[in-house]
Simulated scan of single mutants.
Amino acid sequence: MNLTKILGTQLCIPLEYEKEPVDSGSKIGGIAPLNAKPIYDVNEQKYFCTIVLDELWSVSIFYSFDINGVDEKRDIISYNNQPLYQCNLIHAVVHKNEKSSTGLSIPSDVTCHKIKIGELQSDLLSGETNMVIPFSKIGGTPYVDNIALVGRAFEKLYSDGYKQLFQFDTPNPSRQPYIDGFPWDPGWLHVFVREDDIEKYKFAFVVQQ
């Protein structure tokens, strides 16, 4: 699994949320794949998504933020727009591809939908000369909605050697009204990675809201 061909370049691979529910492959919501074992054992843990990187390996993301702001210690508002590293609040695991578990795996608050992986393309928005794609994608440069608010978070991760692996944007209600429970609404989840060896991957995150 070698991502260095696109990470840190001006290229990206678009991701699209589809209506179809699936129990394997790239997806958001539903039940986590059987081989996706969370690192942290917390009661509030939720499964967010899985992206298949190649024929063997996938990355799945788990979180335990309180999206509704009831639990002050887990209130997502307190963690927005800043670098976040692997912890019980949010983390990613690399695992071999497998169908979803039907038993003890971690469930999700998000309705289950296939994620369609597109073709490698320029990271610049069509018709623009300096605006990167604001939609979901693999690789590319983070789309920044408010530089003053979140810019330093991305600068910090870049200075630490991280590169954007995934960017997930809030589903458009006019195009994707079938998605419910999206935890970063309104906003984006950015997933960063450091190193290019599967045994040494380190992940970091920015919830941009």
Rank of each mutant, 00 (worst) to 15 (best):
Y79D: 05
S78M: 11
G103T: 15
D54E: 13
N80S: 12
V59W: 03
S78Q: 12
I67N: 03
V110D: 02
S60L: 03
C87G: 15
K99G: 14
L120E: 11
N80K: 10
E98F: 09
T50C: 05
S100W: 03
V94R: 09
T102P: 05
I51Q: 01
I90H: 07
D71N: 11
D109K: 01
E119V: 13
I90P: 05
H113I: 06
N81G: 10
N88Y: 13
P83W: 05
Y79P: 07
A92Q: 04
V93H: 04
F48L: 00
C87T: 15
L104C: 13
I67P: 00
V70P: 01
K99T: 08
Y79V: 00
S100N: 09
K46W: 04
L53S: 10
A92K: 02
I51N: 01
I115M: 07
V93N: 03
V110R: 01
S100E: 08
I67S: 00
K116I: 11
I115S: 04
K96T: 12
G69P: 07
I90V: 12
C49I: 07
V70W: 05
K114S: 10
Y63M: 03
E55G: 12
I117D: 09
D71K: 07
P83L: 07
V52S: 14
V94I: 15
E55R: 14
T111R: 04
N80E: 14
I117C: 14
I76V: 08
I90R: 03
I90S: 06
A92H: 05
P107D: 02
S108L: 05
R74G: 10
T111Y: 07
G118L: 11
L53C: 13
H91Y: 10
A92V: 04
S60H: 02
H95V: 05
N88P: 11
Y47P: 00
G118Q: 13
C112S: 14
T50Y: 03
V59N: 05
Y79C: 06
L53R: 08
Q86A: 15
S105W: 04
Y79E: 03
V93Y: 08
S60A: 07
H95Q: 07
N80T: 11
S108I: 03
I51P: 00
C49V: 05
I90M: 09
A92Y: 06
E72H: 14
Q82F: 09
D109T: 03
G69V: 10
S105G: 15
E55L: 15
V110A: 01
S60R: 01
N68V: 06
G69C: 11
C49E: 04
E119P: 06
V94C: 12
I76C: 01
S101P: 02
Q121S: 15
G103L: 09
G103C: 12
V93K: 00
L56C: 11
I117N: 12
Y47R: 02
L56F: 11
F65R: 00
S100Y: 02
